[in-house]
Amino acid sequence: MGMMDNLKGKAEELKEKASELTGKHNEQIDHAVDKAGEAIDKVTKGKYSEKIEHGTTKAKDAVDGFAHRPHPDGGPVGNGQGPVA
């Protein structure tokens, strides 16, 4: 196994771990995105409110798509990309 294969394997492990953590902390991430949007809206004095709202919605949707949510019984549910095999 070459160095590139090792790096690809490690990258996949890290992606899976990040996805798992994102699923576990999804509400906290959404809250942080909302707070950041509110702060930006305040600094811009509401001038870009609609664009900021659209951006925060897109960011939260992206997080939801990336996240693996743990199944209530502890097993994996998947990442919203279709059925788990």
Rank of each mutant, 00 (worst) to 15 (best):
M1F: 09
M4W: 05
L7K: 11
L7E: 11
K8P: 00
K8F: 10
G9H: 12
G9I: 08
G9P: 03
K10T: 15
K10F: 15
K10M: 14
A11P: 02
E12L: 14
E12P: 01
E13H: 10
E13M: 12
L14T: 10
L14C: 10
K15Q: 04
K15C: 04
E16S: 11
K17H: 09
K17L: 14
A18R: 04
A18D: 09
A18K: 08
A18S: 12
S19W: 00
S19N: 06
S19D: 06
S19T: 10
E20K: 05
L21G: 02
L21V: 05
L21A: 06
L21R: 07
T22D: 05
T22G: 12
T22M: 15
G23A: 07
G23W: 03
H25D: 09
N26S: 06
N26E: 10
E27Q: 15
E27F: 10
Q28N: 15
Q28R: 14
I29H: 04
I29Y: 09
I29F: 09
I29T: 09
D30T: 00
H31A: 13
A32Y: 03
A32P: 00
V33T: 08
V33R: 02
K35H: 07
K35D: 11
A36R: 14
G37A: 15
E38T: 11
A39N: 02
A39Y: 01
I40V: 15
D41S: 15
D41W: 08
D41E: 15
K42M: 13
V43N: 01
V43K: 04
V43I: 08
T44R: 03
T44W: 02
K45M: 13
G46L: 03
E50Y: 00
E50C: 00
E50R: 02
H54S: 12
G55P: 03
T56A: 00
T56N: 01
T57L: 10
T57A: 13
K58H: 01
A59F: 09
A59Y: 06
K60N: 03
K60C: 01
K60I: 01
D61H: 02
A62Y: 13
A62N: 13
D64S: 08
G65E: 00
F66P: 03
A67G: 00
H68T: 03
H68S: 04
R69E: 15
R69P: 08
P70Q: 03
H71A: 08
H71L: 07
P72A: 09
G74M: 05
G75Y: 06
G75I: 01
G75Q: 07
P76N: 11
V77I: 04
V77K: 00
G78S: 06
G78R: 02
G78N: 07
N79T: 08
N79G: 11
G80T: 05
G80S: 06
Q81R: 14
Q81S: 12
Q81Y: 11
G82K: 10
P83C: 03
P83N: 07
P83G: 12
V84E: 07
A85G: 13
